[in-house]
């Protein structure tokens, strides 16, 4: 029951993008096309689960016993940077097409605040290891859901006739706002 609650909350109620405001850069940046959005979601999900697992162990078996909790930020970001490099190298070898499509955004996963944000959040919420991993996965699904839905809407937006000042980011933000309103409707279910 607890896990179901964590999953539903992380995907819908406290959606990482639409209610926590994390990962807005990739949300606006790679949402112009459906396939790049899907690729980005996959990469984020992979890195997020792996990073949360490793940072959780790091916090509880290295930092806490040594009383070095204040080094959390710096240690976590290094772990994440290392993982992203790894994913980049692997992707370059295995799926060059996807690698080309994601281009500049892969290194940007390092500066994607969802990853570091989730890693810190599971420590703050005092989850156990399994809960942390479940939470990371659910958050990644929530991110993917928001990103892919948004990409679908934006493909349509391209075709609509807008005032010049509203083109691009402004209308994307307003659309995101309306999506956030829709997601607020989920807050009644827990």
């Amino acid at each position: 029951m607890n896990y179901i609650l964590i999953i539903i909350t992380a995907i819908f109620v406290n959606n990482i993008v639409l209610s926590q405001f994390l990962g807005i850069c990739p949300f606006l940046g790679v949402s112009k096309k459906m396939d790049t959005a899907a690729g980005m979601s996959g990469a984020v999900a992979f890195v997020m689960v792996l990073a949360t697992l490793i940072t959780y162990l790091l916090q509880h078996f290295v930092l806490n016993p040594l009383g070095l909790g204040f080094l959390q930020t710096i240690c976590f970001i290094l772990v994440i940077a290392f993982l992203v490099q790894l994913v980049e190298i692997v992707l370059k070898k295995i799926a060059p097409a996807l690698y080309r499509a994601l281009g500049v955004f892969l290194p940007l996963i390092t500066t994607n605040c969802t990853i570091l944000g989730v890693a810190i959040m599971v420590i703050q919420k005092d989850y156990n290891l399994l809960e942390s991993v479940v939470f990371a996965l659910a958050t990644a699904i929530g991110f993917a859901l928001a990103l892919i839905l948004f990409a679908g809407i934006r493909e349509q937006l391209e075709l609509s006739d807008l005032p010049k000042a509203m083109k691009g980011t402004p209308i994307a933000l307003i659309t995101a706002g309306i999506m956030a309103m829709a997601f607020m409707g989920f807050s009644g279910i827990v």
Partner: peptide
Amino acid sequence: LIFILAPGAFIALGLLIALANTLKT
């Protein structure tokens, strides 16, 4: 209240950027 909640953040920022674009033009 919507402006303090999540959706208002997106909408207010979107409108402010649109305003900035207009001033720039």
